[in-house]
């Protein structure tokens, strides 16, 4: 952590790309040993419905971790538990713990707002605000008290570049984001999440509402983002999980059936149910 910071400061005047590479390199050595999220015997109920049962999972830094499983298996519930969005449903009750960088996310000293600032989220359907593209991307920074126009300008440009949509929208930053196509809207939403420089990005089936071309763009983008961020993605498209992720967890009826490197899950799974699912026999 300290090491990264020193490196960063030293490289302040070098170009952006170099900084990223430096940090990545140092980051991998210093950090990869430690998981970014750890679920420890985590349970969740919707009223009487025991939706997540005894979940134990570690997610690594600077990797893409995919969560797959049939509809209703709890994968969306789980990813929303990671930034405590699931608690917006009033009847939710949890047990067990989830650690974010070794600190419990349920710890009183960590407010949900702080947690969600560090753990960004991209949703199933593109959900830009009915505001201009600029205001959408600058939203997070403004909410967190940054008003300096110069800083905001830079944040917007950097995030839009990071989300690979800068060239498409740079001439119409003041247009309403609703005028964009679905794929563009989703990349605006990714840019919006990047703008507050989160540590982890949660993605809840981010391409399920998009056409194949937009999907490819977003998958390519995720490969880029992985250098700087840890990504956890829920998908029910198995090919997508196989294409992009480093590790894959298979959820079934509220349990984690199997969690391993993606090639293991798809090529020689240990559990019969995993094999049935990835080979398309059910789900």
């Amino acid at each position: 952590m300290t090491l990264t910071k020193v490196k960063e400061e030293k490289n302040m005047k070098t170009t952006h790309d170099e900084t990223v590479q430096e940090r990545n390199f140092e980051g991998r050595i210093a950090e990869q040993a430690q998981p970014v999220f750890q679920a420890k015997d985590f349970n969740l109920w919707y009223g009487d419905n025991h939706a997540l049962q005894n979940i134990d999972l570690d997610f690594n830094r600077n990797e893409i971790s995919a969560i797959i499983g049939p509809s209703g298996c709890g994968k969306s519930t789980f990813i929303k538990a990671l930034n405590r969005m699931v608690e917006l449903v009033p009847i939710v009750r949890t047990e067990g713990d989830i650690l974010y960088r070794n600190q419990s996310i349920f710890d009183k000293s960590l407010t949900v707002e702080e947690l969600r600032t560090k753990v960004g989220m991209v949703f199933q359907k593109p959900n830009p605000f009915p505001k201009s593209i600029y205001d959408n991307v600058a939203y997070g920074a403004r909410v967190h008290g940054i008003r300096n126009k110069k800083v905001l300008d830079q944040v917007v440009e950097k995030s839009l570049k990071g989300a690979a949509i800068w060239d498409e929208v740079k001439d119409r930053l003041n247009d309403n984001a609703y005028g964009l196509s679905g794929g563009q809207q989703q990349r605006i939403c990714i840019a919006r999440a990047l703008a507050i420089e989160p540590d982890v990005i949660l993605m809840d089936e981010p391409t399920s509402a998009l056409d194949p071309i937009s999907t490819t763009k977003i998958e390519d983008l995720m490969q880029e983002l992985k250098k700087d961020y840890s990504i956890i993605i829920v998908t029910h498209n198995m090919q997508q999980a196989a294409r992009i992720s480093d590790r894959t967890a298979f959820f079934y009826q509220g349990h984690v059936i199997e969690y391993d490197r993606t090639n293991v899950i798809f090529e020689k799974p240990k559990d019969q149910r995993t094999e049935d699912y990835v080979s398309g026999r059910f789900g």
Partner: peptide
């Protein structure tokens, strides 16, 4: 106002009142 927009704001660490004044009321 669709709840997806509300979630987007809360998901970025905005508080409830920030979400109301910056997203829900304008919309």
């Amino acid at each position: 106002v669709p709840s997806s927009i509300r979630e987007a704001s809360i998901g970025m660490g905005a508080t409830k009142w920030q979400t109301i004044t910056r997203v829900i009321l304008p919309a």
